[in-house]
Design a protein around this nucleic acid. Structure first.
Length: 291
DNA sequence: GAGCCGTGGAC
DNA sequence: TGTCCAAGGCT
């Protein structure tokens, strides 16, 4: 359809309501956009903002980060969560230097080939850093389209080909307009068409929303199970890594042992961190962030 | 393709 | 208080 009756109102709404985020400003670099997209995976904007700012001050280019040990990326990642993202961002910086002359690639396929960059992030960077035309399907866009077009409160658990085709069909023809459309739909999902209590009164396309017109029927699909956390290996890994982040150099094993009582689980978690490359076991028995 | 991978804020 | 959720990717 190339453009629907929803396009204009959503683009106009974005012009009036877009947040002033640093990675959206004109002076933001493709590297700044890439860093923001990795940090924003499963992590709220409010927590990303300070870390992104410090990160870009310290490493304004991929080469700057690539020249550091990967452990420095893990340390600077702080408490953003999912620290394997920090490792992959560092690996991406190394690949950008060695394979792309230090410049963030502008093609979807080259972006998609970098570690930690999947279909969403590749489309997002190509769109937001380079003004290209790609279907950008994140959790916000999937939810907006599910409601607006499909009349369902929530999208399917896993992304379907139908969703991709739908998103592509709605993309404006002109690449820069398509890129702006993509970020506009995401912003609408983040600020208005939210998961829990959507603000339909503030929505520019509520009059044509299939879900609202159907009376906002409750989600009736399979239960979307929440992730348990307390007592899991993930929590244990987080505690162990926090010890290393907060220490200047290598730490003795007993300093790790004290943060988790269950020795079997603790060893399993530590082994996992080592296997992931997040922790480096030294020859002398101590542990450190990777070099 | 289901499960795993952190963390903290909102309700 | 516990549950839900936040610009996913990888295996």
């Amino acid at each position: 359809m190339r453009s629907s009756h929803h396009t204009g109102p959503i683009l106009g709404w974005y012009t009036d309501n877009a947040r002033d985020l640093p990675w959206r400003r004109a002076e933001a670099t493709p590297w700044g956009v890439l860093v923001s997209e990795i940090m924003l995976q499963q992590t709220p904007v409010s927590r990303v903002l300070p870390v992104w700012t410090e990160w870009l001050e310290r490493w304004p280019t991929p080469a700057g980060l690539a020249a550091e040990p990967s452990g420095e990326a893990v340390r600077a990642w702080g408490r953003l969560g999912y620290p394997r993202r920090a490792l992959r961002l560092h690996a991406s910086a190394v690949a950008i230097v060695s394979e792309h002359e230090g410049r963030v690639p502008d093609s979807y396929d080259a972006l998609r080939a970098l570690p930690g960059i999947g279909s969403y992030t590749a489309a997002a960077v190509a769109s937001f850093a380079y003004g290209q035309r790609h279907a950008v399907l994140d959790t916000n866009v999937r939810r907006v389209l599910a409601r607006l077009i499909s009349g369902e409160e929530y999208p399917p658990k896993t992304q379907t080909v139908a969703e991709v085709r739908l998103a592509q069909s709605l993309l404006p023809l002109d690449p820069p307009v398509a890129a702006r459309w993509s970020v506009a739909v995401m912003e609408l999902g983040a600020l208005v068409c939210t998961a829990r209590t959507p603000r339909c009164g503030a929505c520019p396309v509520s009059a044509g929303c299939a879900w609202r017109l159907a009376g906002r029927p409750a989600y009736d699909g399979p239960p979307r199970r929440g992730q348990a956390y307390a007592g899991t290996d993930r929590q244990c890994r987080g505690r162990l890594l926090a010890v290393l982040r907060h220490s200047e150099g290598p730490v003795e094993k007993p300093l790790l042992d004290v943060v988790w009582a269950d020795a079997v689980q603790r060893e399993r978690a530590l082994d996992g961190l080592v296997a992931d490359g997040l922790v480096d076991p030294l020859d002398d028995g101590r542990y450190a962030l990777p070099s």
